[in-house]
């Protein structure tokens, strides 16, 4: 069958053959008396795209801080490809923080040169390809960029690295429609190659719902749902209706 090669190369994302890219088991985080994350457990299969959904303050950013190794969980395990998450695992993941700021006084091209020197897994070839796809102007000063232009440059920085796990925290916040579309298109391209796993925290369900393989719903620090989107739709529900059922 024509697509058998695709199946071998990573499109068989049932998780049964490959180790999960991300696995959280009873992850708990506390601050003083407050429980920020309460026994959160879920998996993201390698090569798939998972949406991390939930209202502000639900614990999404704290969960991402644990996965990116910035803070350890108080109990439970957070694993990337079956080994514990931690600052030493930065080579395996690429993180785009919420409203992360790039140095405003640099031009885009200068920033990218800096980034190339910073990351051992940087790929000039990918960068060249993505500069076109994300329509980034290397001569433009970062301080003069719109939110959408800066978001595209940030994604470009993330994806020019070859780290297999990409975590994006609100990549569409305040971003214009055309930029959102090219960001979504760039993510699709990466998925198609089968080598990247994405975890994307977003409020922009409309733009992403046709891309999610899985949705993880977090509310009040707890896991309120983890659904395979294909199965959801097969049972007559949409990502939006599922979100509403859980949070409204």
């Amino acid at each position: 069958m024509a697509y058998a090669n695709d199946l071998q190369n990573g499109f068989s994302r049932t998780g049964s053959v490959k180790a999960p890219a991300i696995r959280c088991r009873e992850v708990t985080l506390r601050a003083k008396k407050k429980t920020i994350l309460d026994r959160v457990s879920f998996e993201v299969p390698a090569g798939s795209l998972a949406g991390l959904l939930g209202p502000n303050g639900a614990g999404k950013s704290s969960l991402m801080r644990i996965l990116t190794g910035m803070v350890p969980p108080d109990s439970g395990q957070a694993e990337l490809f079956c080994a514990p998450a931690g600052p030493e695992r930065l080579g395996v993941l690429s993180f785009l923080p919420d409203r992360g700021q790039l140095p405003p006084y640099l031009g885009a091209g200068e920033w990218l040169q800096l980034a190339a020197g910073l990351y051992p897994d940087w790929s000039e070839a990918r960068k060249e390809d993505l500069i076109v796809k994300l329509d980034v102007d290397p001569g433009q000063r970062i301080g003069s960029m719109s939110r959408g232009q800066e978001a595209r440059l940030q994604l470009l920085t993330c994806l020019s690295r070859q780290a297999p796990i990409v975590i994006l925290d609100e990549p569409f916040a305040g971003v214009d429609m055309v930029s959102r579309e090219s960001i979504a298109q760039a993510v699709v391209g990466e998925l198609a190659d089968g080598e990247r796993t994405f975890l994307i925290a977003t409020h922009d369900i409309r733009e992403m719902e046709n891309l999610f393989d899985r949705i993880v719903l977090i509310g009040g620090g707890r896991l309120l749902g983890c659904h395979d989107v294909e199965e959801l739709r097969a049972s007559g529900r949409s990502v939006e209706s599922c979100y509403r059922d859980v949070f409204a």
Binding site: Y3, D6, F11, R13, L49, E181, A184, Q185, V188, G189, L191, A192, D193, E207, N210, L211, F212, D213
Partner: peptide, 16 residues
């Protein structure tokens, strides 16, 4: 599959 998924902005598995 890749081109179609990109221009339609849907998961490549869907196109496959």
């Amino acid at each position: 599959v890749r081109e179609a998924a990109g221009s339609l902005r849907v998961n490549p598995t869907t196109i496959m």
